[in-house]
Each structure stands twice: as structure tokens, then as C-alpha cells.
Write a protein that binds this DNA or RNA. Structure first.
Lengths: 325, 325
DNA sequence: CTGAAAGCGCTTACAG
DNA sequence: CTGAAAGCGCTTACAG
């Protein structure tokens, strides 16, 4: 910066102002400074700027995975919104509360202006660390208590409940659930509970539950079919906690010549791209992952820049009924 | 930090050393310092550390998209390797050379210790900026010239060529190509050229080429089928530049009762998870996206930490022959 | 092994 | 509108 100041014949302050408060410096002076800076290939050092100003213009996000279109969409929404507002994204991938804590420690040392977490299942130390840091934090993909600071998501249970009601209304009576259940994770639990609530209200069996080992594999659907049929030969529908399970299940039905939905109805969760294309097209719950990312970024920045922001933001969900159920 | 130093009755230096050069401070002193730090909830300010030391322990990556399992895998490989070595990932998503440049300007201000780019199609200003910054940069998913600094990838053309040879060996004679072709992008061009080379060598028509508007949509396959059949009614095989196109094509064939591979053979590129599951299972080119991310991180860190690193690193590729061709 | 000094490249708050 | 001073929280290089 001092090179630029010297070459342009102005003080450091004027260079700083030329970049950061265009209004405050004379148009001529500013143009000259910018020209010199461009010529010299000067890129302002935002590390020094951060240290001096206490504002990093960086938002950190910790997601469990990006090989799953839901979170990939959220990261995309975050990235787009942050870039628009001149912020950068510091990304950490952590799929357990323990890894989340260590990502948090690493990331906090970078003094981000805010943090986006996934879900509300955290280690107590993580929560303590966050409170002490005192920065805006949004928990995404969940809306229920406890909330550390702000939450952006939708009612996971209601969405699953709605799909349960739909299947029941279509006349299915022996309905299984293919899910995934890491310990104490409310994001997964709420879906299952919402779905079971629909079954219970209708007086149906709600214990046809299968939990896959992995969240992301197509195999989840296949294994669920095997396991659930063993328990209930009259099984006539399966609700999958993700579209990937549902797709795996459909592929398996094709191989076994089980007709969908005639012999077995299938419903998914997520409305991934494949849902609209697979044969038969998949009924699913549309979740707004991109909007979650956008809204999370907006809430963080509003707060970081001293504006008001809601504690909770519901992006909603929607049933998308297609051919599979 | 000064709070910690005071509370522990030592100098700033000792606190710094306790965190950064454990060997240099007495075990007792170090334990006391760490205990005090933990009690106070002290998280070292790495922004100040970066400014003072000139090393940020941050690596930036610019990818065109993450809603495509290839790059998602690369980001995962990058993230895992960086986290293991105590580095953070600054991620930018930019899908055109223009956006790449503006991401670059933003990211360079953060003084990363290295940068990972995708492909070798850049604006001249981007290259100039990078050269001036003088930090380690790796271009990923490409190996061909020109290389700015280092490259990690595999021979895109050879992989496509191999698949072309395979289809020809299987007896297909009217083979189409379903691709995507943003202006001047060598990553896409190399695949197409490699494939066409196989056709030309075999004396087959190499102009059955269809370019989709979008890289990521399932619709690409469907549109290709329509367009290519119009041009060549005897069309007996289609090579898709991504598995997503191939899957979309298979779904469309199911709808139209076109048997795969009997009526039409299909091959993909990428070996996404779906390839092994779809009916029929998809023949494809396995690309090692995760390894690309790992290797890119390794090369950057080796150089950033003063070690030698190769200019070019080939992760290889592999033909995975399944049922669809 | 431990510590006092200088400096990293900016911004803040103030004076001119 | 422009500028000289102080300081952000660390690390470097050196002396003790």
C-alpha cells in the first residue's frame, strides 16, 4: 500500500479511502490511485485490514458433507449470497459433533464475522466456544430448540408427516420407513417421528423402521426393502429419508420386477434432480437447500453489519407428488 | 494472548511458543499456559499470526460447481487433506473465466498459502495476477499445456479415446457424442477430441456430436438422443461426457422402450455413484476426483512448506465396463 | 529455555 | 477532503 501511496503522491490514508470509502476522496485523486494500484498489481491485504478493523468479511460454514445435493445446494446459496456482498466463504466439512468441534476451533481462530452450522446437535464445548466468541451463528436445516442464536430451515417433522398422510390417503396400509440414525441427531429423528405420527394417527403399524449404516448410499434403499419385507410381507409402501435411498430402491425393484407403485409405492425426501427423471418419477418432499444457504448468509450479514435479523427463518417445504406413490 | 500471559505469569513469547513450538518450552510451563488458555477460552488469533508470519495456513480453491459429484469429491479430498495438516479451505464457486477472475481478486486479498484452480482456461489477467502473487497454484482436472505452475489430473483425451475404442470393439458403428462445450474450454474439448480420434482411426463418422446447454442436467441425454437420431437413424451407441447425461438418457430409453444396450449402447464419464446402480448398470470412465483434491492439497503444502513438488501429477483413470455397452 | 523490541499492513479516530 | 499517530494481536530475530 505504501508503494501505491508513494507512486500516486498521496498518503496511506488516501489509498485506503480510495478502496474502502470512495465517496470520501475526490474522484480525480481516486482515479489516479486506482490506476497506479492496477499498474503495480496491488491487491489490498485484507488480513491486515481484518486485524485493524476487527471485521474479516469472511463467513465460515460447517457442513456434514457436500456429496449430497442438499448441502451442496446450501453451500452454493451461501457462496452466491456472500460473493454478492463482498464476503468470502471459509468451508469446513465435519460429519460428527467431534469433528465439528475441531473445525470450529480452527475456524474461530480466523475470526469470521459469522458461522453457519448444520443442525442443532453439537457438543457442549462447541456451544460454549460459540457463545464466548459472541458472533452471529445460524444453525441450518433445523428450526427446533435448542437454538444457539439463529436458525434457518423448515419443519422437518411436518414435511415427513405430510408425506405419511399422503401415502395413507392413497390407501397404503403397510408402510415402512428407510432412514438413517446417527446418535441423537435431531435432524434425522424429527423426520422419522413426524412420519410415525401420521401412521399412529391412522392406527397403522409404525415400527416398520429400517436404519441404513450410511446416509448417502444407494444401497440404503435396497437393504431396507429386504429387511422390511421380512418383517411385514404385506409391505405396500416405503418412505425414504432421502431421494438417494428411494432411487436405489427403485433400481432394485426394477431388477426384481417389482412394479412401482403397483406392487410397492415409494416416496423420497429432498427432491434431488434425479427425482424428476427416474422411472417412475419419484414423489418426494421438496426441501429448499439453496434458499437455506441464501437466508443463512443474509441473517449472518444483517447481524454482522448491525441490522436486525430474525431469530428463526422458515424456508418452507412442499410435497411433490409424481408417479411413484 | 496478553491475558493468558499475565494469568500464567509468563511473557507473550512463551504463550506463543507453547502453542506453536511445543518443544521449545518446558513441559510444566507449557501445561500451565495451556490450562490457563483453556480456562479463559482463549483461541489464538490466526489473523494476527498470519500478518506477523506471512503464512496464513489457508488454501483457496475455485471450482466451477459443487453440484456435480466430481468436484464435490475434489473439494472433499482437499478439505480432508488440508484439515489433517492444520490448514483451512477458502472456497469460491465460479463457473466462467470472468467469475474466476473476480473470485481470484477477492481470495488473493486473503493471502492464502496456495490456490487450487479448475482447468486451464483462464483470463490473461487471472494468470498475470497469479504470477505476480507468486504463490503455489495447482490447476486441477487437466494436465495439458499451458500450465501456470503445477497441474493435477489425468489425460482427459486418453480416457475418452479408450471408451471410444471399447465401443468400436463391441461392434457399434454409428456412435454419437453427447457433450457440453462452453467457449474454449479445454477440459470439455479434450474429451470430445479424444473420442473423435478413436472414431476417425476406425474410419467411422465422427460428426455425430450434440452439445447440451447445461453441464449438469439429466435433460442433456434426452435431447442428445433426439438430435442424434435425426441425423443418423442407424445410431447404435452414445458416449456421454458425464454420467448425469448418461443416466438421463437411460431413463429416456426406458420411457421409450428402447432397450439398452441391445437397441442403443450408452457409456458415461465420471463413475458417479449412480453408475453402479442404475438399470442397466452404466459403463463409464472412472475419474479420481477425490484423489485429485488430495494430491492438489499435497502439492500446494509441499511447496508452501519449502519442499519439492512435481510440476505435474497424474492420478490416472480407468474404464469401468458394466452392462450398458 | 525465556523475554523485550520491532514490525507485519492495514484502519480508526482525530486534527488540520 | 487529506494526513500523521497509534494500535490491532501476533511472530521474528535476537539478546540474556
Amino acid at each position: 500500500m505504501s508503494d501505491v501511496a508513494r507512486a500516486a503522491g498521496v498518503s496511506l490514508m488516501s489509498v485506503s479511502n480510495a478502496f474502502n470509502r470512495p465517496a470520501v476522496v475526490l474522484p480525480d485523486t481516486r482515479a489516479r490511485i486506482l490506476a497506479v494500484a492496477a499498474e503495480l498489481g496491488y491487491v489490498p491485504n485484507r488480513i491486515a485490514g481484518t486485524l485493524a478493523s476487527g471485521r474479516s468479511q469472511v463467513v465460515a460454514a460447517i457442513v456434514p458433507s457436500i456429496r449430497n445435493s442438499s448441502f451442496a445446494r446450501t453451500v452454493q446459496g451461501l457462496s452466491d449470497t456472500l460473493a454478492d456482498r463482498g464476503y468470502e466463504l471459509l468451508l469446513a466439512i465435519a460429519d460428527t459433533p467431534e469433528r465439528e468441534l475441531s473445525s470450529l476451533q480452527a475456524v474461530l481462530g480466523r475470526r469470521p464475522d459469522g458461522i453457519v452450522l448444520t443442525g442443532n446437535t453439537h457438543l457442549p464445548q462447541s456451544v460454549a466456544l460459540l457463545r464466548q466468541a459472541g458472533l452471529p451463528v445460524v444453525e441450518s436445516w433445523i428450526l427446533s430448540e435448542p437454538v444457539i442464536d439463529m436458525a434457518v430451515g423448515f419443519n422437518l417433522g411436518a414435511a415427513a408427516y405430510a408425506m405419511g398422510r399422503h401415502l395413507i390417503a392413497r390407501g397404503y396400509r403397510h408402510i415402512g420407513y428407510a432412514g438413517y440414525a446417527p446418535a441423537d441427531n435431531s435432524r434425522f429423528l424429527e423426520r422419522q417421528l413426524g412420519f410415525q405420527r401420521a401412521l399412529i394417527e391412522a392406527g397403522l403399524r409404525d415400527d416398520l423402521v429400517f436404519h441404513a449404516e450410511e446416509h448417502n448410499g444407494f444401497a440404503g434403499g435396497r437393504l431396507a426393502l429386504e429387511a422390511l419385507r421380512m418383517r411385514e410381507p404385506r409391505l405396500d409402501a416405503i418412505f425414504c429419508s432421502t431421494d438417494v435411498f428411494a432411487a436405489g430402491l427403485i433400481f432394485d425393484c426394477q431388477r426384481q420386477s417389482i412394479r412401482v407403485p403397483e406392487d410397492l409405492a415409494i416416496a423420497g425426501y429432498g427432491d434431488f434432480e434425479i427425482a424428476a427423471e427416474i422411472v417412475p418419477r419419484l414423489s418426494t418432499v421438496r426441501t429448499r437447500g439453496y434458499e437455506i444457504g441464501q437466508a443463512a448468509a443474509r441473517l449472518i450479514l444483517d447481524r454482522a453489519e448491525g441490522r436486525e435479523a430474525p431469530i428463526r427463518y422458515d424456508v418452507g417445504h412442499e410435497l411433490v407428488l409424481r408417479e411413484s406413490s
